[in-house]
Write a protein that binds this DNA or RNA. Structure first.
Lengths: 245, 245
DNA sequence: ACAAAAGTGTTATCTTTACACCCATGT
DNA sequence: ACATGGGTGTAAAGATAACACTTTTGT
């Protein structure tokens, strides 16, 4: 267990934060990257960060993504702002101090040190789609661990991070057909079956194999590549790749 | 012409702003409410404002709407955040001071007074749909006038307000079918023809009258009321109203 | 009676859905 | 040879588009 590391918050825009809902996909499960904070008590949180004074908000989100997954140029979508007047980490901080006596304010370290956390925070919500096989989850200074959780088994998180995750999922579901962004959850090359399973998992419904293939191909965004010989005793499926625009 | 009124900016969250794209509809034209600023030089801007420290961002947007249209409980949608690092009103301020010598900083009124305007601004974009027949456009302390402009004839505005308007229009077009919010542009009671003209104007395409009626009625969101006798020498159309949920 | 615009119903066309059939691959 | 899953084609069902016909209203 450690102290709250007090970074130089002067470098960041006050009252503003970025929360990232990072989606990955594996074994018919849609997953979200959630950190467990490095304190006594089970505190979970979305990967978050602040905005540098000279930093585009999109760049800030990319930086946070890079820090937590090691990935550059991730698919990112800024989907909503969470700005209730009472939105702050005060309640969380109280619980935290309660469970971690050494964080209790005293003469040497007065309550002032937590100002950044007790004041109102307006959070810009981003969701990211990453290839889970390439992402290398990476803890921050505040984290004990960081792990992928099935969307149905997300632990209770601090502040409104569960609500943010729910909103991100809604937007992802409506984006998946319109913006065709589900491909970002897969490696560069993939089979028809892999993309179908992603659609089925996210939309929580089944598709008829043959019709799904036609639907996807009619979008004219895929090019057919070589066949993928897996060693399975069945016909080798084709690999596909997104065409570059 | 007058000085920039220096309000008490301490009441607001620094670096954050709200810009509103207020849509109205009249005579087959989709219109946007744009203010002309009360200075020498043709400076136009979207209705904007800041967020009180104890104010929900949605409430702040509603307050700005109320100030500029006199309307309460307006249909509002927070559609995107504009947060480039170089997003500020510096360039506008330079032009403004150039055209308005009495605003030039001097010993008595140093440049400091404009701090609020020269620093980086993260803008939360909202679009609103209002009944143009009820809205009473109302100038702010900064405005010379405020008027409805056809979406195709919006003047050049300060900062990125033209871009914000373009993005709002895109979102409105994709929302209109999904969220069925176009009805908010009309009075409580309206005819089928009125709503059809709105759809045609916003989507810039024509619909076959009879099929449009079926499409709208099958949404099961309208109730048929009494007929509307206009004095025209044709069959009186029914009035409709959104059903309450 | 007639012109104008609203309301209703019917047919043709296109799209989506369901499924039968054939093909490639490894044991 | 056969079990497994991939690829192609086709027919039925459903949704959408086009349009003919009837009704209402004011002159």
């Amino acid at each position: 267990m450690k102290k709250i590391p007090i970074s130089n918050f002067d470098n960041y825009i006050p009252h503003n934060g970025i929360d990232c809902v990072i989606f990955g996909y594996e074994k018919k499960q849609l997953k979200v990257l959630v950190a467990k904070l490095n304190f006594e008590g089970d505190f979970y949180a979305l990967p978050s960060g602040f905005i540098g004074h000279g930093e585009d908000i999109d760049a800030a989100a990319q930086r946070i993504l890079k820090e937590r997954t090691g990935l550059n140029n991730v698919y990112l979508d800024q989907f909503r702002v969470f700005g209730k007047a009472n939105r702050n980490t005060k309640a969380f901080l109280d619980k935290l101090i309660d469970r971690n006596p050494d964080l209790r304010p005293n003469e040497q370290d007065p309550m002032d040190q937590y100002q950044w956390f007790t004041k109102r925070q307006i959070s810009i919500g981003y969701y990211a789609l990453v290839d889970i096989t390439v992402a290398k989850p990476n803890i921050s200074d505040y984290d004990q661990s960081i792990d992928w959780y099935d969307i149905h088994e997300i632990p209770e998180m601090i502040v409104d991070h569960n609500e943010i995750t729910g909103e991100a999922l809604k937007v992802l579901r409506s984006d998946i057909n319109e913006k065709l962004n589900a491909f970002n959850l897969l490696p560069e090359k993939f089979t028809m079956n892999e993309i179908q399973e992603i659609y089925e998992t996210i939309n929580e419904k089944t598709y008829i194999r043959t019709n799904f293939q036609k639907m996807i191909l009619e979008l004219n965004v895929l090019e057919r590549l070589e066949k993928k010989f897996t060693g399975a005793k069945n016909r080798a499926p084709f690999l596909y790749r997104m065409v570059q625009k």
